[in-house]
Simulated assay, not measured.
Amino acid sequence: MTVRLGANRYGKAETRLVHVVRDGPVHHLKDVNVSTSLSGDMEAAHLTGDNSAVLPTDTQKNTVYVFARRHGVGEIEEFALRLARHFVAAQHSIHHARVAIEEYGWTRTGPHSFVRDGGEVRTCVVHHDRDGRTTVLSGLKDLVLLNSTGSEFHGFITDEYTTLQPATDRVLATAVTAQWRHTSADGSAFAKSYGEVRRCLLDAFAQTHSLSLQQTLYAMGERALTTCPEICEVRLSLPNKHHFAVDLSPFGLDNDNEVFHAADRPYGLIEGGVLREDAPDAGFAWE
């Protein structure tokens, strides 16, 4: 039997970085989690243990800290681009760099005082290779949304194992994970784009009378693409956070969709992408 090395990469996962910009008495805070992954001429490392082509993961971690000190962080997409381009340009053995960043929000309560936001986490993933191809994915996760009405689910397949009853008025809740692909790596609009896409996701969720979570997913992606010309594809992962009306009849009470049990598992998971018809191929497998 013949075997061979398949696709591989290595890197430093979850380098925690807090960067404070001291602008006189007013400070600015960036709190991020950076993961780097490199791939290229790594056959010898796997097959013979020859590490001459390997940039240590500890070096990757140090690079994150040094770049924060030298260049600042700024928009997380810009920081990821700087790191990815550096790794590919600096080492001949590295052909592709992937940098993923999560940003945790803080709200200012004073010139140098902050309170951690309890909302969603901003994300980005940058891919850059030796051929100069660069892809920037912005996104967010843990954006928890709920419509207390305006959602239905009926007309589905039934068989001998089906117990779910059709619903014409249900609670629709989810925790959105979204990524959107930029048409270019020009960093001038990353901050504006994030706010616009986030607003589109919120508006479409709130304004769509939903017959299924799939329909809502498409409406959210469509709204973002038709509003934001700088992006060409949106991918969404929407867990259905089920809310079941509690049977209060044993206590002589009715329950007109007012009292619910919020179940955490198992849950439906709806995932899909929406893209422009002329969207270029991403050139890599999305994660």
Rank of each mutant, 00 (worst) to 15 (best):
P229H: 04
A167Q: 12
A189N: 06
R198L: 13
H209W: 07
Q165H: 07
L164C: 00
R223P: 00
G221H: 12
G221C: 05
S210F: 09
E230W: 13
V176K: 00
A175R: 14
F153P: 03
T208G: 04
D247T: 06
G155A: 04
S184R: 01
S212L: 08
P166A: 15
S184V: 08
H243E: 06
F156Y: 11
V234D: 05
E152R: 15
A178T: 09
H242V: 04
Y194T: 15
V176L: 02
G155F: 00
S193K: 04
H209T: 14
L213R: 04
F251H: 13
N240R: 07
L238A: 01
E230S: 11
A167M: 06
E233R: 15
H209D: 11
I231Q: 00
L236Y: 11
V197H: 01
T208H: 13
L217R: 11
P250R: 05
T158A: 08
E222M: 06
S210I: 02
L201K: 01
A175F: 03
A245Q: 10
Y194K: 06
R199A: 15
Q179H: 12
P250W: 09
T208C: 09
D159C: 08
L201F: 00
T216I: 03
L201C: 04
S193T: 15
T216G: 01
R223W: 03
S193E: 13
H243T: 02
A219H: 11
I231V: 10
T163P: 03
Q214A: 11
M220K: 00
G187V: 07
Q207N: 14
T208F: 10
A173V: 09
T158F: 05
D169W: 10
F153E: 05
C228F: 02
S249C: 02
L238I: 08
G187C: 13
V171Y: 02
L172H: 08
P166I: 04
L248D: 09
G195W: 07
S188P: 04
H154F: 10
R181D: 00
T162M: 01
R223A: 15
G195A: 13
K192N: 07
A204W: 09
F153I: 06
R235K: 12
L225I: 10
V176Y: 00
T158G: 00
S193Q: 14
S212C: 05
S151M: 02
V246S: 01
E222I: 03
E230I: 11
E230L: 08
A178N: 06
K192R: 15
L172R: 05
R235E: 04
D159S: 11
P250F: 11
E222L: 13
E233H: 13
K241Q: 15
L225E: 01
Y194N: 11
L201E: 01
Y218H: 15
